[in-house]
Amino acid sequence: MRASTVKCLSALAALALTALPAAAQDSGWQGQITPYVWASGLGGDITPFTGGPTVSFDKSFSDVLEDLDGAFFLSGYARKDRFVVLGDFSYSSSSKGELTPVGPASGKLRQTSLTLAAGYRAVSNESMTLDLLGGARLWRIKGSVEAPGVGIQSSPGKSFVDPILALRANFALAPRWSAIFYADVGGFGVGSESTSQIVATANYQVNDNLYVSAGYRQLNVDYSDGGTRIDATMAGPLLGMTWRF
């Protein structure tokens, strides 16, 4: 592998992709944490080793839900003056059976990712804020393939770290409404060939400490190591509830 093995279920620093109003200003620390539901579809291909069968995924959320083994999503955000930190933790597992050129085969894709980034608030005014960030995405991906007809059973697990560059823009729309756009890109051949993410949400302030959000998220990874290839896209709407402190 091109990157060291990662044990990524250590501390989640303050994370985030949702909801502070753009005009909020404070000289001390501000933070928020957001558990959310991500109705993610799944698309992509898994090749466990050179010459092995490739299992293709192309699932809507209803398909994923039918075969879902488990999922958990959490995000948050913290800021002091113009210094910001954010991140996102995602876990999901999905499986599929299909007919391949070597006979019936089944595949399972399990991904755990932890995105952490820190940066600088480059723009701050009453209508918007803009944060520029750099950080890393830590991955643990396991793609299992079984083809009983030809005696193939393989469960390659890969752990790697991708550097990322990111931006996060927060737009004030109305007294209780805001919108957030987040995007990152990374990999650059260090861990994966490429990884990227976009999140867009509309956020409503219920009270001083509580927000609800709805939007869309897409997370991509294209990883290749030897004969193992994992090319996956997870995308779909999300709903979140943010506690601000």
Rank of each mutant, 00 (worst) to 15 (best):
V6I: 13
L9E: 08
T18S: 10
P21V: 01
P21G: 04
A22Q: 05
A23V: 02
A23T: 08
W29H: 12
G31H: 03
G31R: 02
G31C: 04
Q32P: 07
P35M: 12
V37P: 02
W38T: 04
W38S: 06
W38C: 06
W38D: 07
A39F: 15
G41E: 10
L42I: 13
G44V: 03
I46N: 00
T47W: 04
F49K: 00
F49W: 02
T50Y: 07
G52Y: 00
F57R: 15
S62N: 13
S62G: 11
D67S: 14
F72Q: 03
G76H: 05
K80T: 07
D81Q: 15
D81T: 09
G87R: 02
F89G: 06
S90I: 01
Y91S: 06
S95Y: 09
K96S: 04
E98Q: 15
P101R: 05
V102K: 12
G107P: 00
K108L: 08
R110D: 08
S113R: 01
L114K: 09
L114A: 13
A117K: 00
A122K: 12
S124Q: 15
N125A: 03
E126D: 15
S127D: 14
S127W: 15
T129R: 11
T129P: 08
G134I: 08
G143I: 05
G143Q: 09
E146R: 07
A147K: 05
A147Y: 04
P148D: 11
V150S: 15
I152H: 12
Q153N: 14
Q153I: 05
S154I: 04
S154Y: 11
P156Q: 11
G157D: 12
K158L: 12
F160R: 06
V161W: 00
L167Y: 13
R168F: 04
P175M: 05
I180Q: 08
Y182M: 02
D184N: 14
F188S: 03
E193G: 13
T195W: 01
T195Y: 00
V199F: 09
A200I: 07
T201E: 09
T201Q: 09
Q205D: 13
N207M: 09
N207E: 12
D208P: 07
L210W: 15
Y211N: 03
Y211V: 00
V212F: 12
Q218D: 09
L219F: 10
S224C: 01
G226C: 04
T228Y: 11
T233K: 11
T233W: 00
M234C: 06
A235F: 03
P237F: 05
L239I: 11
L239E: 05
